[in-house]
Design a protein around this nucleic acid. Sequence first.
DNA 1: TCAACTGTTACAAATATAATAACAGTACAC
DNA 2: GTGTACTGTTATTATATTTGTAACAGTTGA
Lengths: 144, 144
Amino acid sequence: MNSEFTIAVHSLAYLAYQPDRMATSEMIAHNVNTHPSRVRKVMSCLKKQGYVGTKEGIGGGYLFDRSPEQITLAEIFRATSIGSIKPSWCSGNGDDNCMVACNMAEVMDHIFCEAEEQLIMYLQRITINDVLERVRAARQQSTT
Amino acid sequence: MNSEFTIAVHSLAYLAYQPDRMATSEMIAHNVNTHPSRVRKVMSCLKKQGYVGTKEGIGGGYLFDRSPEQITLAEIFRATSIGSIKPSWCSGNGDDNCMVACNMAEVMDHIFCEAEEQLIMYLQRITINDVLERVRAARQQSTT
DNA sequence: TCAACTGTTACAAATATAATAACAGTACAC
DNA sequence: GTGTACTGTTATTATATTTGTAACAGTTGA
């Protein structure tokens, strides 16, 4: 799977963690441990879908546009990584006369598509707020 | 996801399609449209798990060891591609003092792990025989 | 003992992913 | 206005992963 999903979730959790302040791409990138440009690319996508607000110019950056309890990971997955379950390689057709060779790609495609739907149903149950709660719980455990 | 899963499923469906004859890696590779060496690598793995029988030497090749109705795609996935849902890149720790930065990798890891379990549960419901049936159904549709 | 296989390793080629640089556009401070 | 600090976007380079291919030891049967 594409790691843009990870970047998006981490960035949103970071925004949820400090809800009042605007965060610049540089701040987020430092927290996520990647390049600011990559963060901007992902956040630009999230902005278009209405998940975050942005402000250009001095004092600008990113801010939540909806509440962290409303946004599920399913939505983020759809925005950033739809179709990434299916491998790019597909078993082609080396034998025109064979029923299996001719139709396997289509059958596998369908299987990967449904598999992704299952995945999305699972991600539907997790919100950005849940992620932040889990982060808090993980911290708790590592200090005991 | 790793395409070895696709190669494995295609190969097994091909074996199920002509259950009496042994198929060589070359025959399978031609049908799957890849290199015989890649097929041998995948099949070697399936052999170790007891899904297919192999015979070396003249007249050798691969043959089903269990019936196609028994083998689910979940088993094949586990044998070939476990762990491949999770992206190799993970959001690292650029900020030691931040709870989010420190624990996000662990939280995401857990999410990907559970997501994979969901996927496996879905694949559990599909057997190699089902795949062959779907191939037959696809053929049916394309001729009408 | 030869031919036709598998099993395995090593390496080259192709592709995908991530990092980085660069710069136009925007908003605010002065 | 002009400078500064930001986003948005594109292009390019570096790195990692995936796939294809070759090579050869080991096995089996004619």
